[in-house]
Amino acid sequence: MGIDRRAFLKIAGLSTILGLGGKAAFDILAPGELEASTNAASPGAGKRWAMAIDARLVDDKVISEATSACHRHHNVPDLDSAKEEIKWIWEEDYEHSFPGHQHEFVSDDIKHAKFLLLCNHCSNPPCCRVCPTKATWQRADGIVMMDPHRCIGCRFCMAACPFGARSFNWGDPRRVTRVPELVAKNQGFPYNKDYPTRAKGVVEKCTFCVDLLEKGEQPLCMTAANKVKKGSFTFGDLSDPESPIRSLLRKRYSLRRKFELGTNPNVFYLI
């Protein structure tokens, strides 16, 4: 390497300040060094979490079990309004999951396939790049986090996310326990007393169940989905060549949403 470690860390740091994106600079200046240099303190360092969803196995039951497991654990309210909808994981058809990819002769099974969409925990996340308060940021293991206590609700991250993965609390989500029309739809809210509810005016989204990962467990959508259809979801560490997700991706053809935008999504759809 023609540039010593200290010097390249400096350049990489500088280019981050200049907004060039530290990761990109690392990749150019010293491919592979990022893992080594960030391993030290941050949780999950050296890993790159990813999810693979088998579109062939996803059916209505998988969808309802996975979404309700997620939304109940994370106290996502049903606000009964498309305008104010909050969702962390949701169903979408092929045409709208991969806009621009559909054509009139696409095979029937793909045309009618159902997809589960969620935050892609992009390796190069534009949402984190634009946030003015670091209320959304990327952990060393790639998980893109949200701090609802710091978010000022500017919604810059929502404009920046090309996947529509972020929801905003346009009003107080806790009103589902007070407003009569909403109470019936949200019996038992907050469903999970150990997980915080959010306040109005902040953004939220999927966390890859980081709280469970830290306990060595798996994301809830996956656990729920695999109970219905074994193997419909696979979760794992992409940096480990022996991980089940890596071997699955070696075997099966996979799609990622809008890969051409360079955000490097970590949710793969097997077709």
Partner: peptide, 26 residues
């Protein structure tokens, strides 16, 4: 106009408390 658009205007000082040079809004 920026102020009235914020979901959480009381936290506006967070932009200064946690300066983030990679954000254009900063």
């Amino acid at each position: 106009f920026i102020f009235v658009d914020l979901g959480n205007p009381v936290r506006i000082m967070n932009v200064l408390l946690y300066p983030t040079p990679n954000s254009i809004l900063f």
